[in-house]
């Protein structure tokens, strides 16, 4: 049943714990992300950002409550809901033995695209992300930045309505970071909702309009970035982050 179609993500009363309570635990978490937003999810290490993203993408199943993507409940693997979003995990999620074009051919098919669509989107993406010249070379020999671009290209080959990005620019040089951020903005301008986590707060500031700060399985603060900075009287996201989550080490 489709409801709340203006929301890209609607999380209601979410409860989750890992077996043996070995990690972060969520109780009655609520979060709404509107369609077309550039949403940043921030928090210290172990705060539960990746867990929340895994719950939103169906990699983890909630104990209680519900998660809807564009009005479709997630939880059971369904073709409809899985086609709606793309996921760019923090780890390189592709076959290193294959070339970028071969990876795109395989993942494109599994996203449900036909041969013509795959060929067209692969060409576009390789061009935009500067991988055309190496499109037939095995990815295992690529630099970290090139691999990040391949990772991103696979996640967006099917033109998803929502794109989840878990630290998409970690370990890359300035040029690659700029290229990735520019492309993400371009995607957003074309209507894709971005849900993004990163420890690169200055980068996040330039990308995200709406943010949520997560810590110890709770959303500490949520709202428009500009409003939150004004409310707390901070110059940038990093100051706000330290103010709301503290300065002690996190493991």
């Amino acid at each position: 049943m489709v409801t709340n179609t203006s929301l890209a993500v609607n999380i209601e009363n979410l409860g989750f714990h890992y077996p043996g309570n070995s990690g972060v635990t969520y109780h009655d978490l609520n979060l709404k992300i509107a369609e077309g937003e550039r949403f940043g999810l921030f928090g210290p290490n172990g705060a539960g950002k990746t867990t929340l993203m895994n719950l939103m993408t169906g990699l983890l199943i909630a104990d209680t409550g519900s998660i809807e993507l564009l009005g479709h409940k997630i939880g059971t693997k369904s073709k409809t809901v899985n086609k709606l979003f793309g996921f760019v995990p923090q780890d390189f999620s592709f076959y290193q033995e294959l070339s970028p074009i071969e990876n795109l051919q395989f993942f494109g098919a599994w996203y449900g695209l036909n041969r013509k669509q795959i060929a067209q989107r692969s060409e576009e993406l390789l061009e935009i992300l500067g991988l055309t010249e190496v499109s037939h070379k095995a990815v295992e020999n690529f630099s970290g930045g090139m691999k990040r671009r391949v990772n991103l290209a696979i996640g967006v080959i099917h033109n998803p309505k929502i794109l989840f990005l878990d630290e998409p620019t970690v370990g890359v040089d300035v040029q690659t970071r700029h290229a990735i951020i520019d492309y993400l903005k371009q995607l957003n301008n074309n209507g894709t909702t971005l849900i993004y986590t990163s420890h690169q707060l200055s980068e996040a500031e330039g990308l995200c309009e709406q943010i949520a700060l997560v810590d110890k399985g709770e959303i500490v603060r949520e709202g428009k970035l500009d409003n939150l900075l004004e409310e707390y009287g901070h110059q940038d996201l990093e100051e706000l982050f330290l103010n709301l989550t503290g300065k002690e080490y996190r493991n």
Binding site: T57, G58, L59, K77, S78, K79, T80, N82, K83, F85, F87, P89, D91, F92, S93, F94, Y95, Q96, F107, W110, Y111, G112, I154, G155
Partner: peptide, 12 residues
């Protein structure tokens, strides 16, 4: 490998 994480999110 990471590829499996992505495979689990695909509509296949």
């Amino acid at each position: 490998s990471g590829s499996f994480i992505r495979l689990k999110t695909l509509p296949t």
